[in-house]
Design a binder for these strands. Structure first.
Lengths: 358, 358
DNA sequence: CTGAAAGCGCTTACAG
DNA sequence: CTGAAAGCGCTTACAG
C-alpha cells in the first residue's frame, strides 16, 4: 500500500517536472514545431490526425505551456497590472473588481499592486511589472508628487509604452489626461449645489490629502461651487486630511477644536471621500452630535457601505466598477494599436438620510 | 523645438528597447557573463573597476533585467499568488493587505486572484500561476466542492508543489490541514457562549453557504455550543445563506416569513460573517425592529466596518492581517525547504452595542 | 502539411 | 578575476 502510494506520487511529480513541449512532441511522435502549432492554437495547418495525437499526448502529460518561455519570445506576458493606493479601500476594491470582470476569460491575468500611497513603492511595482514585460498597467489612483513619482516612475512608464505595453490612467496625474475618468470637480460642485439647495451656507470641507490630484480637484469643485453661489469661503472650515475613516474622526476633533460650533458656524460637513464621511459619522455619534439634526454629513464615491451606515450616507455616486471595466477594455484597445479617446464618466448626487434641509 | 523633442523622445524609446544585458556588456566593454555577475548581484568575484563600469552602463541604458528570461532559467519567477473568493469583501482585503505587508521589499510580487467563489475560475487562475511558474500560491479562502475544485485544481497544485513552489492554505479545504488558520468552530462557539451568558436561549443562525468549509465549521460551532449549554436546536432558526450583506437582508425576510417573531421566537441573530450581520442590521432598521432592544445581532470576523455601523457590531475578532502576514512568511519558509508546522491563531469575542442581555 | 534551426535574454558550470 | 558556450522552453521564418 505504502509503496503503491509512493510510486503514484512519484509519477505525478514526474509528469509535472517533464511536461515541456519537447516531451509532448516525443510522446506524440512529431517535431516540436508541430506540437507547438497544435498546443499554442496557432491557425497553422496541421492534419487532423496529427493534431489529435498531440492533444492526447498533452493531456496525458498534464502539459501546461511555460508562459515565461513564450513571454520571452514575444517580449510580453499576458498580465495586466492594476496599481491602487490601498487594497482595503472599497473605492479601489470596486475598481479592481471591474477590471477583473472585464478581464474574465480574456486570457489576461490581473495583478493588483498596492502602493500604500508611497511613490517609491508605486515606482518599484511598476519596475517589477516592467521586468516581467507586463502587457499593460492601469493606474487606478491619481498621481503623487514625491520624488520617486517624478524621477523613477516616468522612466518605467516610458519604457513600458516604448515596448508596446498599454498604460491607462483612471485618475488625473502629472503626465496628462486620464483615458478613463470622472469629473471630480464637477461632481463635488454638484454636491455643494445640492447642500446649498437644502439651505446650507456654512459647509465645512474635509479635503483629503493635498498631495493627491483627485483631492485637489475635489477641493477646486468645492471652491468653485461656493463662489458660484455667492458664498464667502471660510478657510477655517477647510481641513486637510488623509483619506481614511480615522482621518475623518480626527478632522472632526480638529474642526471642533477651532471653536467652531456645529449648527451655527457650520451646518454641514462635506467630505472628499466616503471613508472620511464614515469616520465623521462615527465620531459625531460618539460626541452625541446628531446627524442630520445637528449637522448634515455628505461623502463622495458611493462605496457600498455608504448605504449601510446609520444614518445612510448622502454622497456622490461614481461608476467605480464601470471605470475598472472600461479601463481594462481601453488597455486591450491600446494593445491592438487603437488610438484611445479620453472618456469622462458621469457622476450623480445621491441624497440619503445623513443630510436634511435647514 | 519640435525636432529636438522628437529626437529626445526617440532616444528614450531606443534605450527602452535595447536595454538587454548584451547592450550593457557592450557599453561596458565586458562579456555578458561578467555583466550578468554584476547586475544579478551574485556573490561572484568581479574587480571593483569592472563592476563600476558595468553599473554605470546599466544606469546609462536604464537597464531592467528581463524577469522572464531569468525565470525561464530558474523555472521560477518571484511571484506569489493569493487566491481570494472576492476582492471587495473586507475579510479578504485585510488578509491580502497582510500578505502585501509581509512581502514588502522581499523581492516578491504579490498577485491577487479573485475566484468569485467559482471553482472553475479558481482552477483557471491556479493554472495561470502554474504556467507563469509562480514561486508560491496562498489560498486565502476555504475550499469548494464543485467539479473543478476536485478534478482540475488538485492537479495544478500537485504540479506546482512538484516543481518546488510553496502552497499555503489559510482556511480549511479538502486536501488537509491549513498551514495557518483560525479555530472557526471554537470562535463561533465562544460567541454562542457569550450570547447564552447574556441570557439568550433562542438564537437564530445565518449560516453562510454550506458549500464552503469555513461556513460548515462555523455551523458546527453553533451546534456544539448550544448542545453544550443544554439548549435544544431549532432547525427552523438556521438559515442557509450566501456571505454578502444582501444575503443577510434576504435571510432576515426569510426568517420572518416563517412566522418567527423577534423577541419571542428568537432573541438574537448570530451571523456566520460580518457582511451578513451588516445586511441584517440594515434590514432590521428598515423594518423598524430595534437592535439591540428588540433583538441582538452578532457577526463573525471583525472587519473594519464592524466598528462603524450603528449600533456598532458585536463580533468575533479574527487576526486577518496577521493571517496574511504569516501566510506569506510560511510560503517563504516552504521555499527555503523548511517543514511547516500548522499554526492555529486565537480568536476573540468582542461585544459592542448590537447585543445586550435579556 | 511537416520539420530543422535560429534565437528571445539570461545564468552558470567550465576553462583559462 | 574574466569569458566562451550551452541551454532554459518556446515560436517562427524557411525549406521541403
Amino acid at each position: 500500500m505504502a509503496v503503491g502510494h509512493g510510486a503514484r506520487r512519484r509519477q505525478v511529480v514526474r509528469a509535472a517536472l517533464l511536461s515541456s513541449i519537447t516531451e509532448v512532441a516525443r510522446l506524440a511522435g512529431v517535431s516540436i514545431a508541430t506540437a507547438s502549432r497544435v498546443v499554442s492554437e496557432a491557425d497553422y495547418p496541421v492534419s487532423a490526425h496529427t493534431r489529435a495525437r498531440v492533444l492526447l499526448a498533452a493531456r496525458e502529460l498534464d502539459y501546461v505551456p511555460n508562459a515565461l518561455a513564450r513571454g520571452l519570445l514575444k517580449s510580453q506576458i499576458p498580465v495586466v497590472g492594476v496599481i491602487v493606493h490601498d487594497t482595503t479601500d472599497p473605492y479601489f476594491a470596486e475598481i479592481v473588481r471591474g477590471v477583473e470582470d472585464a478581464a474574465e476569460s480574456s486570457g489576461y491575468l490581473v495583478i493588483t499592486c498596492s502602493s500604500e500611497r508611497e511613490g517609491a513603492r508605486e515606482a518599484s511595482y511598476v519596475r517589477l511589472l516592467r521586468s516581467m514585460r507586463a502587457a499593460g498597467v492601469i493606474f487606478a489612483g491619481s498621481g503623487m508628487d514625491d520624488e520617486a513619482s517624478i524621477e523613477e516612475l516616468p522612466r518605467h512608464v516610458a519604457a513600458l509604452q516604448g515596448s508596446g505595453a498599454a498604460v491607462v490612467h483612471l485618475s488625473p496625474h502629472a503626465l496628462g489626461e486620464p483615458e478613463i475618468s470622472v469629473d471630480n470637480q464637477g461632481g463635488l460642485a454638484a454636491m455643494v449645489d445640492a447642500l446649498v439647495g437644502l439651505g446650507h451656507r456654512r459647509i465645512a470641507f474635509l479635503a483629503g490629502p493635498h498631495t493627491l490630484y483627485v483631492a485637489r480637484e475635489r477641493l477646486a469643485g468645492y471652491r468653485r461651487a461656493l463662489a458660484a453661489a455667492g458664498i464667502n469661503i471660510d478657510e477655517r472650515l477647510i481641513v486637510d486630511t488623509g483619506f481614511s475613516a480615522e482621518a475623518g474622526a480626527r478632522a472632526v476633533d480638529q474642526l471642533l477644536a477651532t471653536g467652531a460650533k456645529p449648527g451655527t458656524d457650520f451646518t454641514a460637513i462635506l467630505c472628499a471621500n466616503d471613508l472620511l464621511a464614515l469616520g465623521t459619522l462615527q465620531r459625531l455619534h460618539e460626541l452625541g452630535i446628531d446627524v442630520p439634526d445637528d449637522v448634515s454629513v455628505a461623502g463622495f464615491d458611493d462605496i457600498p457601505v455608504a448605504q449601510m451606515t446609520a444614518p445612510s450616507l448622502s454622497t456622490v455616486r461614481l461608476p467605480l466598477r464601470e471605470m475598472g471595466r472600461l479601463g481594462f477594455k481601453a488597455a486591450i484597445c491600446a494593445l491592438n494599436g487603437e488610438q484611445l479617446v479620453p472618456q469622462v464618466l458621469p457622476t450623480q448626487v445621491v441624497l440619503r438620510d445623513s443630510t436634511r434641509g435647514i
